[in-house]
Amino acid sequence: MSYTDAFFYFFAALTVGSALVVTFSRSVIYAAFALLFTFLGVAGLYVLLQADFLAVAQIMVYVGGILILLLFGVMLTTRVTNAEITTGTVQGLPATVVVGILLGTLILLVSRATWNVQESLPDVTGTTTEIGERLLTTFLLPFEIAGILLLVAIMGAAMIARSTDKTKEAA
């Protein structure tokens, strides 16, 4: 087993293990915390696939942005003194059926699909330039549309936050 393999299994175990904690943990804080390690594991897998830009973007966006807001939300909604929002289990039977069907379908698809497997990775040194050029030439329109979508979302969020400010003291 080479170093790369060892690292792959380490990151894969980290990703799957912490994802299991996310799913089964009763405490929302623990789930959010475990999600941190899931994101880190995925970033590690990206590094092994020589997708350096994607790996760092993954950490910046998910770990540095989304997850911290998630934790922020949980902490503010939890009462400080007696902590922990817990997640409960409802609708056990229907959920099991739906998840069972989904799992079966996925296993069927994974086993039947013809995977485009490469023996070794092409020797890439840095993907950033390539990604940047593609985004501003070939994929310019989707890129701009995504940008506008995000801008609209930001403005919408700001509007919603603003209207509640009038009734309540700003935090």
């Binding site: 830009f53 760092v56 950490i59 910046m60 770990v63 540095g64 942005g65 911290i68 840095g126 950033t128």
Partner: peptide, 12 residues
């Protein structure tokens, strides 16, 4: 390769 982004990611 992505040194600056690495710094920003860790800062965050």
């Amino acid at each position: 390769n992505v040194g600056i982004l690495y710094v920003l990611a860790l800062t965050s």
